[in-house]
Amino acid sequence: MTVISTTPDPAAHTLTLVAEFTAPPKAVWQLWADPRLLERWWGPPTYPATFREYDFVVGGEARYHMTGPDGARSNGFWRLTALDEPRSLEFEEGFADQHGEPSTALPVAATRVDLDETPAGTRMTIVFRFDTAEQLEQVVTMGMAEGITLSFGQIDALLASA
């Protein structure tokens, strides 16, 4: 399986996911840079994502929704804050209202993705940092750890078909 670990750290207010892939960092980078590829793995298999807006530049934003098995939609957003192709990216990530605007009712994560070359391919480390331990606990209780593990578990098949 792709995912090595998913670790919440209440003291640091973080949720960290580590995954390894048998593809070079440039190929893994494309999974973040191309919204059509991103749609194929961002979100658990039963909650696929649809990116309506995607401006993959520093200062750019993304608006998307995930559709559940019952047809219900959950909206989300990103604000890209740093890009260092193909090594790292950073963005603010959170929930959005029905119009796609960031919600103030739920936590926002400062997210950093690092893509490190390994002898076998790429190690991806993604850290979601929240303002408080309570915010981290809220998203973990909502199923974020399980959801991202399932989401990232789809990447191996996607890289194999590229």
Rank of each mutant, 00 (worst) to 15 (best):
T2Q: 04
T6S: 00
T6N: 03
D9G: 02
A11N: 13
T14R: 04
E20C: 00
F21H: 09
A23D: 03
K26R: 09
W29M: 10
A33R: 04
L38H: 07
E39A: 09
W42Y: 10
P44N: 11
P48F: 09
R52F: 07
D55Y: 06
V57M: 12
G59I: 01
E61P: 05
A62W: 12
Y64E: 08
M66T: 05
P69C: 13
A72Y: 08
R73P: 07
N75L: 04
W78C: 13
E85H: 15
P86K: 03
E92H: 06
E92Y: 03
E93M: 15
A96Y: 07
Q98M: 03
Q98F: 09
P107H: 02
A109E: 08
T111G: 01
R112P: 09
R112C: 14
D116A: 12
T118E: 11
T122C: 15
M124S: 09
T125D: 11
T125V: 12
I126D: 01
R129I: 06
R129W: 06
F130G: 14
E137L: 11
Q138H: 05
Q138F: 09
M142P: 01
M142A: 12
M142W: 11
A145F: 02
T149W: 02
Q154L: 14
I155D: 06
D156G: 00
L158C: 06
A162K: 05
